[in-house]
C-alpha cells in the first residue's frame, strides 16, 4: 500500500514536471518547424540553436503583471487557466506512457521493483481520458465568460459549440476499435496489437483513425479548427484579457492535450508501446508521439482554418454520419 502510494506520488510528480517541460519545449519545436516550413530561421539567438528561448519566455511570463480586468469576475477569471491545465494533466493520469519496466537491481532500496508506467490503471481509461478532456472545455468557457469582454464571450461560445460537437465524433470514432478489442483499458488496446505492424488497429479501422485525428485536432484547438482564439477574427478569443502566467497555463494545458491526443492515437491505432522489430517499446511510442506532434505543427503550417459554420457542418453532416456508418459496418462484420 505504502509502496504503491509513494510510487504513485513519484509518478505524478514526474509526469507533471516532464509534461510541463515538454509543453515549453513544444513551443520551441512549433516555432522552429513553422519557421523552417516558411523558409525562416525561428529562434536562434538565445542559447545554442535558440534552445534557451524557452527559458527566456518562461522568465518573461513569470515576471509579467498578472492583470485582472476591472469588471471581470475575479475568482472565476483566476480559476479558469488552472482548470485548463489541471484537466489536461488529469487526463494524462490514465494514459500508459511507456511499457512496464523493472528498476535495475543496482539502485538501492527500490531495485527490482516492477513499475507500470501509468499513474492509474483504471479499466475505463479511454472514457476517462475523453471525459476529462471534455471537462477541459470549462477552462476556455469560464475564462471567456468571466472576463467581461465581448471577444471573450465569442471565444467561449465557440468553445462550447466546438468541443461539444467534436466530443461526439471522438467518442463515436473510438467506439469501433473498442468493439474490436472488447475493452476500454488502454493497456488492453496495447496488448491487442502485439503482433507487429500488421496487427495495428489502423489497418482494420482506417476511417475511425481519420475521424479520431480530425476530432482530436478540434478538441486540442489546433489549426484547421482553432476558432477559439483565432486572432484574425476574435482578437484572441477566450484568452483576450489574459497575460503572464495565467495565459501560460492555457498554453501548457493546450500542449499537454496535444501530447494526450498523440498518445491516444498511437496507443489505440498504432500499436502503442509494443516493441517494433529492433526498436524497443519506449522508443517506439516516443517516435509515434513525436510524429503525431509534428503532424499537428505540419498541418498548422500548411492548411488554412475553416469558418465556424463550416466547422459545424463538417461535424454534424459529414463526420458524425461517417462515424455511425463505420460503427454499424464494424458491428455487422464482428457479428458475421
Amino acid at each position: 500500500m505504502d509502496a504503491l502510494l509513494i510510487g504513485t506520488v513519484i509518478k505524478i510528480v514526474l509526469v507533471l514536471a516532464i509534461v510541463a517541460a515538454l509543453a515549453g519545449f513544444g513551443t520551441y519545436l512549433e516555432r522552429k518547424v513553422l519557421a523552417f516550413m516558411q523558409r525562416r530561421l525561428g529562434p536562434t539567438h538565445v542559447g545554442p540553436f535558440g534552445l534557451l528561448q524557452i527559458v527566456a519566455d518562461g522568465i518573461k511570463l513569470f515576471t509579467k503583471e498578472d492583470f485582472i480586468p476591472q469588471n471581470a469576475n475575479k475568482f472565476i477569471f483566476m480559476m479558469a487557466p488552472v482548470v485548463t491545465a489541471a484537466t489536461a494533466f488529469i487526463a494524462l493520469s490514465a494514459v500508459p506512457l511507456f511499457p512496464t519496466f523493472t528498476i535495475p537491481d543496482a539502485i538501492p532500496f527500490i531495485g527490482g521493483a516492477i513499475v507500470p508506467s501509468v499513474i492509474a490503471d483504471i479499466n475505463v481509461a479511454i472514457l476517462f481520458v475523453l471525459g476529462m478532456m471534455g471537462a477541459g472545455l470549462y477552462g476556455p468557457l469560464l475564462a471567456g465568460m468571466a472576463q467581461a469582454n465581448k471577444w471573450g464571450i465569442i471565444g467561449a461560445a465557440r468553445t462550447a459549440v466546438q468541443f461539444l460537437s467534436y466530443e461526439v465524433v471522438t467518442g463515436l470514432s473510438i467506439l469501433a476499435p473498442i468493439m474490436l478489442v472488447g475493452s476500454l483499458s488502454l493497456i488492453d488496446f496495447n496488448n491487442a496489437q502485439t503482433g507487429g505492424i500488421g496487427s495495428w488497429i489502423v489497418w482494420q479501422q482506417p476511417v475511425a483513425f481519420v475521424l479520431f485525428l480530425i476530432a482530436g485536432f478540434a478538441e486540442t484547438n489546433r489549426t484547421p479548427f482553432d476558432l477559439l482564439e483565432h486572432e484574425a477574427e476574435v482578437v484572441s478569443g477566450y484568452a483576450t484579457e489574459y497575460s503572464g502566467l495565467r495565459w501560460g497555463m492555457f498554453f501548457i494545458g493546450e500542449y499537454a492535450n496535444m501530447i494526450t491526443i498523440a498518445l491516444l492515437a498511437s496507443i489505440i491505432f498504432f500499436g502503442g508501446f509494443t516493441p517494433l522489430g529492433f526498436i524497443p517499446g519506449w522508443l517506439a511510442i516516443l517516435l509515434k508521439v513525436t510524429f503525431f506532434f509534428f503532424l499537428m505543427l505540419w498541418v498548422r503550417a500548411s492548411w488554412p482554418h475553416i469558418r465556424p459554420d463550416q466547422l459545424m457542418w463538417f461535424c454534424w453532416k459529414v463526420l458524425m454520419p461517417i462515424a455511425v456508418i463505420n460503427i454499424i459496418i464494424t458491428g455487422i462484420v464482428i457479428m458475421i
Binding site: 472514457l127 476517462f128 475523453l130 471525459g131 476529462m132 471534455g134 471537462a135 472545455l137 470549462y138 468557457l141 465568460m145 464571450i153 467561449a156 461560445a157 462550447a160 459549440v161 468541443f163 461539444l164 466530443e167 467518442g171
Partner: peptide, 18 residues
C-alpha cells in the same frame, strides 16, 4: 457521470448562460 453531466449537460447550461 463525467462525460454526460460535466461534458455535455453543464456545457449546454453554460451555453444558455451566454
Amino acid at each position: 457521470q463525467l462525460v454526460v453531466y460535466v461534458g455535455a449537460v453543464m456545457a449546454l447550461y453554460a451555453f444558455g448562460m451566454m
